[in-house]
């Protein structure tokens, strides 16, 4: 009795005979991953509002003022995300939103953006609900306008720009269902090939 050696031709024959097994596994894999991806899928909404902290450009020391303001921006960003501001923000939110959030969740949800050499600070709020994001972004900027002068002496004027409205809110969907399903099908095909190969060899062995 010889040990059975397989040639490429044999492998092709095995695949054809067991193609049904492979298809079954591919379908199971694809649908399994599809369900997984659908469950993992989430949409988030981002609202943003801009503000600027600067001194008047009229004075003789305008140039050095602007440099000083630019240098302070990382500090301002930290202050906006600090507890003093987020707690006041939370208190200023409408009751319905206050029920679903906490000062800590607000500091997790907001993010500040700033371009190099620009004095404009953009406050972005990202949550699972568009109205929440809207309220948080707008309120944070309002509260910052009130709180920041208390936190830093000699702060310039805090200019706040237009409130974000519902139309300006952007949404991002996380998790690509198509990709996951494709991967599921691919894994199913591989698993099917291995299972059919194993069954065929074990049958030959016994």
């Amino acid at each position: 009795m010889e040990t059975k050696k397989y040639s490429l031709n044999d492998l092709i024959k095995i695949i054809w005979k067991n193609i049904i097994v492979i298809i079954v596994f591919a379908v199971i894999g694809g649908s399994g991953f599809f369900i997984l991806a659908k469950r993992k899928q989430s949409t988030t909404y981002t609202a943003e509002r801009s503000m600027m902290i600067s001194h008047s450009l009229d004075s003789k020391r305008a140039h050095s003022q602007v440099s000083a303001d630019l240098a302070m921006i990382p500090t301002y960003e930290d202050l906006i995300k600090s507890r003093q501001v987020t707690e006041s923000t939370w208190k200023a939110l409408p009751k319905s939103i206050r029920k679903e959030t906490s000062p800590k969740s607000i500091s997790d949800n907001i993010d500040t953006n700033n371009r190099p050499e620009s004095l404009v600070i953009t406050v972005k709020a990202t949550t699972k609900d568009a109205n929440q994001s809207l309220a948080i972004a707008n309120t944070t900027v309002e509260v910052a306008k009130k709180e920041l002068p208390k936190m830093q002496k000699g702060l310039g004027t805090v200019h706040v720009y237009t409130k974000a409205n519902r139309k300006a809110v952007t949404s991002q969907t996380h998790g690509s269902v198509k990709k996951y399903t494709l991967v599921g099908v691919a894994l199913g095909i591989v698993a099917g090939m291995l299972v059919s190969f194993t069954i065929t060899t074990l049958r030959h062995m016994n």
Partner: peptide, 14 residues
């Protein structure tokens, strides 16, 4: 044998 064909199938598929 098992190792060879299994790993070959897996490698070619990947």
């Amino acid at each position: 044998q098992c190792y060879f064909y299994t790993t070959l199938i897996l490698l070619v598929s990947v």
